[in-house]
Design a protein around this nucleic acid. Structure first.
Lengths: 195, 195
DNA sequence: CGACTGACAGATTTCAACATCTGTCAGTCG
DNA sequence: CGACTGACAGATGTTGAAATCTGTCAGTCG
């Protein structure tokens, strides 16, 4: 069908996998489907990803990394600490809400994949918490935040805002009061950081 | 079998239901099982609860109310506002963790029931948030807390601590860092309430 | 008379035969 | 020689017929 030429790379397989997942959902997406979408045998896919689990984890990591990268820009930005913290949390909430709203099937799909890829998700959460730690540390250094241990404070902040980034709560994000709840929570947390 | 006498009351049915749920789990517990445990026909159970759903909701409400009642004592106590708030949140966390740890099967059972009884759970959450609102209002009245709207602040507090009372996170409660995470979060939140 | 029973229809769940999928690997092809 | 194929064994998922359950109600019993 397709001109046989373009070489089979891990990236091409991941793209095809995401497309198959979007079409079929995580329960029905098979390795054979992915291979068919690429015009190769499923044995070739196994050359790049040794198990279906590895393929799932790779595509999940790819998805999670998109959010991590978007947030890294804010972590590095130069605004004053309170603003940077607010921006970071708001961006995380907005990004998640956008993804959940724009393509609900794909979001639901990744929501299920996430429950199957514990280690990948743990690593993602560590990355995000590290970014938050950096923001808190910078705030302490500039005398804007009080925190005996930025890493502990960052964990507290991340856990406190769980309702606004944990996919478990995705159904709440579109409700009328959600934005107000988020703003009230962030205000309370930022007040708690005052020196 | 049993001396036929003790009259069939809603309360006796709920006790038997909880026992059947503990034994069989929510998926396999049938109305016929409950009737058998009571030595009556299942038709008699339907006299008190018109549907299986109603029975499930009643037994779920009973379970949730035990926690509500335990917390109401603290809400009414006379300690200073910050202590009362800390006590209330700690008691909620401890009660949940105790229930989850002491009888995991029953806890898992109620965890599933809760997902099926939306309205009952919503009412429960409103009750708890109302208790928190009362504590915040009292704190504002005594000049210990700053809050433009105690109800909004109470919602923020409740949502912020979700990880330590939402059954979804039960698996995290026994982990080593959980108590430390909880303490750090409560410290941050109480600091945020300072005038 | 009112609490309870038990037989019943339709809805839901179980279970086992069948079909599909995962992961392997000896062999093909350029 | 190395990327790829396709047939295969064991694991997993699907399907539909049989079993069980939910909810009703005419009838029994004290």
């Amino acid at each position: 069908m397709t001109p046989s030429s373009p070489p089979l790379t891990a990236e091409r397989i991941l793209e095809a996998t995401e497309e198959v997942l979007r079409r079929h959902g995580p329960a029905k997406a098979t390795v054979v489907d992915v291979a068919r979408a690429l015009g190769v045998s499923h044995g070739s896919v196994y050359r790049h990803f040794g198990t279906k689990t590895a393929l799932r984890e790779a595509v999940t990591k790819r998805w999670l990394d998109r959010t991590t990268d978007e947030l890294a820009v804010i972590t590095a930005a130069g605004a004053d600490p309170a603003t940077r913290l607010r921006d970071w949390l708001a961006t995380l909430f907005t990004a998640k809400r956008r993804k959940a709203g724009a393509d609900p099937e794909l979001f639901a799909t990744y929501r299920e994949l996430v429950t199957l890829s514990g280690d990948v998700v743990d690593a993602h959460l560590v990355e995000l918490t590290d970014q938050l730690t950096e923001i808190v540390r910078e705030g302490v250094a500039r005398g804007a935040f009080a925190s005996a241990d930025p890493a502990v404070t960052a964990t507290a902040l991340f856990q406190a805002t769980g309702r606004f980034h944990d996919p478990e709560y995705a159904a709440e994000w579109e409700k009328p009061g959600a934005q107000g709840d988020f703003d009230a929570l962030v205000d309370l947390l930022v007040r708690g950081l005052r020196v």
